[in-house]
Design a protein around this nucleic acid. Structure first.
Lengths: 148, 148
DNA sequence: CAAGAATCATTCGAGCTGTGAACGATTCTG
DNA sequence: CAGAATCGTTCACAGCTCGAATGATTCTTG
């Protein structure tokens, strides 16, 4: 009945990280979909929530995506009245993106969804193991040059 | 110079799992690309390496993908002489897929690549933490119904 | 100050993945 | 034996991301 299929691949750290990562990403995407956004949008909002308004180039660099992708993400977030996009008066090539109040609310809702997902994940682990996992992933992430 | 950007999202377990997962997946894909295969191919080979020849439906079910995707994966692996695809004499609708010797070699090479990637990952963690991470991810995976 | 190089945002086309719907062949059911 | 169900296959399609080309603006440099 159950598929107990452990093979040489599944015993690999890379495999477990990869499959769990894509599973968790899918679950997070499903959780924020009712809010009208996708994970990349949330990432953009989260970056904007720290510090001053940023140009799209900065966003692209921090998020490790191509600038043209930031355009469409920002378009859609602007459509939702979640961000404001104004020309930078000091350099009129740039756009200064900043969160609106609605954007802050939207981000908060997305973070709540992430927190709930975290709770579900750590529920099967226990508090101590949950924090241990956070710490280990943090080491790996910073080692890889990722935020965290 | 460095982007020290920790925001409310990056402190989330879901975010770290997601980003690390996609990073590791990309690295694994790059590692096996010279062998002419992609991660999904390796997954198929790995499933075939355990137990008897399987039908494509079984593969699709275990790998959690749609049967039509198994068709193209099997096509390409057959092209590489990594698997054999013969009609099941007992049910001539089915195909029985099995590894060839070359397929076993190919899988071994892919597993070696995965092991090397694992070594790189755990290098920054130390042996004890590396095993702890494996264990925690294993719990999460089996909790989620994934192989592992 | 003028001309060319560089930078920013935008648009557009392309590639790659994976999906779902239709189809023919085969087997099961009653 | 007739119809339903199953297997594999094909094909068109949507989603996501990237890269090149473009226009606007600013910087550089002679």
């Amino acid at each position: 009945m159950d598929d107990v299929n452990a093979n040489a691949l599944t015993g690999t750290l890379a495999f477990r990280l990869g499959t769990l990562g894509s599973l968790v990403s899918a679950r997070f995407a499903a959780a924020v979909a009712p809010l009208g956004v996708k994970p990349k949008h949330v990432g953009l909002l989260a970056v904007l929530s720290t510090g001053a308004p940023a140009s799209q180039q900065e966003l692209a660099r921090v998020m490790k995506v191509v600038p043209s992708l930031v355009v469409s993400l920002a378009d859609q977030l602007e459509e939702l009245d979640a961000i404001e996009r104004v020309r930078d008066p000091e350099d009129r090539r740039r756009h200064r993106l900043s969160l609106t109040d609605g954007g802050r609310d939207l981000l908060a809702a997305c973070l709540a969804a992430a927190a709930e997902l975290d709770a579900e994940l750590t529920a099967s682990l226990g508090a101590a193991d949950g924090e241990a996992l956070m710490r280990l992933l943090g080491v790996l992430a910073s080692e890889a040059g990722l935020p965290g």
